[in-house]
Write a protein that binds this DNA or RNA. Structure first.
Lengths: 111, 111
DNA sequence: TATTTATGAAACTAATCGGTTGCAAATATA
DNA sequence: TATATTTGCAACCGATTAGTTTCATAAATA
């Protein structure tokens, strides 16, 4: 299946699952209790998240604990990087500009 | 239409559009030249991006220039925040630990 | 061993998605 | 004014999506 992490986090239920397992590993049954869907639906979401390597499994007897693969979240962050530079540079430049003209006002024009 | 920013960025063409207009405003026609789809398909993507307020329009005669609404990108960043805290505390600590033991290997145990 | 529990997978369905073609409206140009 | 250009919108279509129900398997428990 041709799924990437951006499609994976497009679904609100999957985002909620991601948030839930971020702090502690959970079983499909425990996860399903948090949603108004069947356990099987949650299982399908977990399948997709597993395919994208966003979650990892750890079997314990007949239970399977799912937990978050944090480094995959970093991939989204990496894509955002290019825009972060922009919004940071815009405001930073404004700050610098304001600081500059304020300095010039005080001390007279000096490079 | 029940669309949010996460669904908006799920489509690769829309992500490419976002990147293209991030640096300079562009018309639908100019944008369409960058993809193997019709202008109308690009127009539909722009409609979705507009509904999500990810892009803003500026009419100039019969042309419409689309540009990025940077602050919407920040919303994704905001969601990522909760995970960033985690990976920074985990991986940065790991990096520091690795750097530390490497240093100790070279120079002998020194703080 | 028989039963219950936890899980994934298959088959099906209604809704949505991304694309197309065709058209209408508005603006620029001949 | 007649024509060309730029654009958005509607209607349609095949593929995908998220959900359901049903079933099979494996592990725990009675």
């Amino acid at each position: 299946m041709r799924r990437d992490i951006f499609q994976a986090i497009a679904d609100p239920t999957r985002r909620a699952i991601i948030v839930l397992i971020a702090t502690q590993a959970m079983t499909p049954n425990a996860l399903a209790e948090n949603f108004h869907t069947t356990r099987q639906a949650v299982s399908k979401h977990l399948r997709i998240l597993t395919e994208c390597e966003i979650v990892k499994q750890e079997q314990q007897g007949r239970e399977i604990y799912y937990s978050l693969e944090l480094k995959k979240m970093k991939e989204i962050d990496k894509w955002l990087e290019q825009f972060r530079k922009m919004w940071e540079s815009r405001f930073d430049n404004l700050d610098q500009y304001l600081a500059k003209i304020q300095k010039e006002k005080k001390h007279g024009k000096s490079k």
